[in-house]
Simulated scan of single mutants.
Amino acid sequence: MSKETHHTLRAIQNLAGEDLDGTSDVQIRGEFIEDGFDPDAEASRIAASIDGVVAAFMRAHTASAKREATSRRSLIPMVRPTLEKIRALIERACASEPALAASYRKGSKQSEADLETMYDDLVALGKIDPSDVYD
């Protein structure tokens, strides 16, 4: 769509909105009846259509979230390397990206669980390649 077409459509939308804003509910209902439509039936049809769109969006969003969670889970290694190897891999990742170093603190105060979680997170983020375990 060209910029000019987009601008024209925007102007039409604005005019239609102004016209709608200036029309009372009674007038709109009268126009519906005059055009041969049942306002209540149209309102029900539109509500059902909106419900369908919202439901489809929610299903798609949920499916996407499930795929995302599943893909993240599959990146986390089932068998971790030794703690010494985890420390070395984390230190190497922090050396290559200094922004990561703030969360590591040279491994001095982290528990084993902290180190394992950080390793899993860095693998999931792609900062550590799980195949590096075998180097």
Rank of each mutant, 00 (worst) to 15 (best):
I76T: 04
G52H: 04
R72T: 04
A41R: 15
R92H: 03
S64Y: 03
A48M: 15
A65Q: 12
I90M: 01
A93C: 10
A55W: 04
D51H: 10
A69Q: 09
M78F: 12
C94D: 01
K85Q: 02
T70W: 13
R45I: 09
L75Q: 02
R80L: 08
T70E: 09
V79K: 12
S74N: 07
S49M: 15
A43I: 10
S64N: 06
H61D: 15
I76F: 03
S49K: 15
R73E: 14
I76V: 11
S71E: 14
A47T: 15
G52I: 04
R92F: 04
A95C: 05
F57K: 08
R92L: 02
L83R: 02
M78L: 13
I76D: 00
M58S: 12
P77K: 05
E91R: 02
A69H: 05
S49W: 12
A63M: 13
R72E: 05
A43F: 11
I90G: 00
F57G: 05
I86Q: 01
A47Y: 14
R59Q: 14
S49D: 14
T62V: 13
M58R: 15
S74R: 06
C94N: 02
K66C: 04
E84R: 11
I46P: 05
I76W: 01
R92P: 00
G52E: 08
V79E: 10
I46W: 08
L83Q: 04
R92T: 03
A43R: 14
I90E: 00
R45P: 00
R59H: 11
M78A: 14
S74Y: 07
S49A: 14
A47K: 15
I50L: 15
E91C: 03
D51L: 09
R92K: 03
R73P: 06
T62D: 07
R80V: 03
H61Q: 14
E68K: 13
K85V: 02
A43K: 14
S64R: 05
E68Y: 07
A47N: 13
P81M: 10
G52V: 03
R59T: 11
C94G: 03
A47W: 13
A93K: 00
L83T: 07
H61G: 10
R45C: 07
A95V: 04
V53R: 11
V54Q: 15
A63S: 14
V54E: 08
A55T: 10
R73M: 10
A56W: 02
A47Q: 14
M58H: 07
S49I: 07
H61S: 15
A60V: 01
S64T: 08
A95E: 06
A63P: 03
I50H: 10
A69V: 09
R87K: 08
E91N: 04
D51E: 09
A93Q: 02
A56H: 05
I90Y: 00
I90C: 00
S44K: 09
V53H: 09
T70D: 07
A48W: 11
A43H: 11
R67G: 00
M78T: 15
R72H: 04
P81L: 08
F57D: 05
I46K: 07
A41G: 10
C94F: 01
I90V: 01
S71N: 09
I86N: 00
I50A: 10
R67P: 00
S64V: 05
R72K: 10
S49L: 14
I46E: 10
E68M: 09
V53F: 08
A88Y: 01
E84W: 08
A69R: 11
L75N: 02
